[in-house]
């Protein structure tokens, strides 16, 4: 954004929105909207509390495990689908169905199957993230330049060398793109999982605050979550830009 020729740093418009929030909060417009300054003050208060730290730890644990499984299962599956017609035909319909399915509706089923604890939340997170990771890895491998593969073959590359030195790198921009979107979806997954199962992590915290009408606390936690999700996505976008210089030239 530019004002009178001066380049403002990215996201400066957030300041404007924050100001609006503050003003609306101060007019006492609604009990649900406390002023931003109060929310920030509360945020620093609750960050030190054990309840918050426990919630943060549990959420981070569920999130990281969920994303880990999504990546470790998703990328090889996608690469295999991209290289093998048969596997592709078998799995693609399912991947497409789950990609667009309302996964939230599945959470109660998972609760029945895997209990009301951490396990269900991790699986929910993985289910939110994995499909787009698979699809992107698959596309990355499928659009690889044929002559790169022929080049590697003509110089006598073993299948393993071709995989690690050519296929993986050629698909990396797409893979990272998929991981970024997958992780954003995983944030949704971990929160929705916790809200529905609501015994652990921020789910429990939300439950506590909203039942007791602690709106400042409620918003403070929300701001933390949004900021976390946003920073993770920006960090991944940065990684993606670092490989994008060759994305267009494969």
């Amino acid at each position: 954004m530019q004002i009178k020729g001066v380049r403002l740093p990215g996201m400066s418009s957030l300041l404007l929105w924050g100001l609006l929030w503050e003003i609306v909060g101060r007019t006492g417009f609604s009990f649900f909207v406390p002023p931003l300054s109060e929310v920030v003050k509360t945020l620093f208060e609750i960050i030190g509390t054990t309840a918050f730290q426990k919630a943060l730890y549990e959420t981070a644990y569920a999130f990281c495990s969920g994303v880990f499984f999504a990546i470790v299962i998703g990328i090889p599956t996608g690469i295999m689908m991209g290289k093998n017609r048969l596997i592709d035909e078998l799995l693609l319909p399912w991947v497409n169905i789950f990609l667009s399915a309302p996964l939230t509706a599945l959470v109660p089923v998972l609760m029945v199957l895997f209990g009301f604890g951490m396990k269900s939340i991790i699986i929910t997170t993985t289910l939110f993230a994995i499909w787009i990771i698979i699809l992107n890895a698959r596309v990355g491998v499928m659009q690889i330049n044929r002559s790169l593969v022929e080049m590697a073959t003509s110089f006598g590359a073993s299948p393993w060398a071709a995989f690690t030195k050519v296929y993986f790198w050629a698909a990396l921009p797409e893979i990272l793109g998929g991981v970024r979107i997958g992780i954003i979806r995983a944030v949704k997954g971990v929160i929705i999982g916790q809200l529905l199962i609501s015994l652990v992590g921020f789910g429990a915290l939300f439950e506590l605050y909203s039942n007791n009408f602690l709106m400042k606390h409620f918003w403070a936690v929300l701001v933390v979550l949004f900021a976390l999700a946003f920073s993770i996505s920006e960090f991944l976008a940065y990684l993606e830009r670092r490989v994008s210089y060759y994305a267009a030239k494969r």
Partner: peptide, 12 residues
């Protein structure tokens, strides 16, 4: 050894 029409260089 093969020399490719479209060069086939590793862009990375």
């Amino acid at each position: 050894a093969f020399v490719f029409q479209d060069f086939a260089l590793l862009p990375w």
